[in-house]
Simulated scan of single mutants.
Amino acid sequence: MTPLQALAALDLWLAEFGSPVILRRVTWLDGVAVPADVEMPAMVRGYQPHELTGSTVQGDSSVLLSPTPIIKAGWPGVPSADGTDVRVPVRGDKLVIAGRVRNIEAAAPIYVAGELVRIELQVSG
């Protein structure tokens, strides 16, 4: 499977089975907070008891996203000198799930042949 095929399959699956969420990053412009939102489908689930660790606690959720809506929206990111992929949410970004603002605690980008094809998040709150 090529990266484009993997991404297309994920996009179709999320469109059919995902729930709507809003990915939010707050940027600052002349001292004013400006939220940048991207509406997208996502798969959201709670963690199973055996998945709970010191940093993953009851009430946290696992979220699967496609990078496609993020890229299409030109979601804000500051190019990083250390090579960090600015398309990937970071700790401190927010995810609105069913009207509830949740905190992104961790993100794990998944690459196939060097192409970003999915993003897994841990959210809390």
Results as ranks from 00 to 15, higher is better:
Gln58Thr: 10
Asp93Met: 11
Gly77Ser: 08
Ile71Trp: 00
Val44Tyr: 02
Pro35Leu: 09
Thr2Glu: 11
Ser62Val: 08
Gly31Ile: 12
Val38Leu: 12
Glu39Tyr: 00
Asn103Ala: 14
Leu64Pro: 09
Gly46Leu: 11
Asp37Met: 02
Pro49Asp: 12
Ala107Arg: 12
Pro20Phe: 00
Leu7Phe: 02
Lys72Glu: 14
Thr56Lys: 11
Ile71Val: 15
Asp11Phe: 00
Gln122Asp: 10
Val26Gln: 09
Arg91Asp: 06
Ser19Phe: 01
Arg24Ala: 00
Leu64Ala: 08
Asp82Gly: 07
Lys94Arg: 15
Pro76Phe: 01
Gly59Arg: 08
Asp37Leu: 02
Val57His: 11
Ala8Trp: 00
Ala106Lys: 11
Asp11Gly: 06
Ala36Lys: 10
Val38Gly: 12
Val86Thr: 13
Pro67Gly: 02
Glu51Trp: 01
Leu4Pro: 09
Ala36Cys: 13
Pro89Phe: 01
Glu115Thr: 15
Val34Gln: 13
Ala81Glu: 07
Gly92His: 01
Arg87Ala: 03
Gly99Phe: 00
Val57Ile: 14
Thr27Asp: 12
Ala6Asp: 11
Pro49Val: 03
Leu121Gly: 08
Ser124Val: 02
Glu16Pro: 09
Leu12Met: 09
His50Lys: 13
Pro67Phe: 00
Pro20Ser: 03
Val26Pro: 13
Met40Asn: 06
Ala9Leu: 14
Trp75Val: 06
Ile71Gly: 08
Glu51Gln: 13
Asp93Ser: 12
Leu116Arg: 13
Pro20Cys: 02
Val96Leu: 11
Leu64Thr: 05
Val44Pro: 11
Glu39His: 02
Gly125Tyr: 00
Gly59Ser: 12
Glu120Val: 07
Pro76Cys: 04
Leu23Val: 03
Arg87Asp: 06
Gly59Ile: 06
Arg24Gly: 01
Leu14Cys: 03
Ile119Ser: 05
Arg102His: 05
Asp37Tyr: 01
Tyr47Arg: 08
Glu51Leu: 06
Ala33Gln: 15
Gln58Met: 10
Ile110Pro: 04
Leu14Asn: 04
Ile97Phe: 02
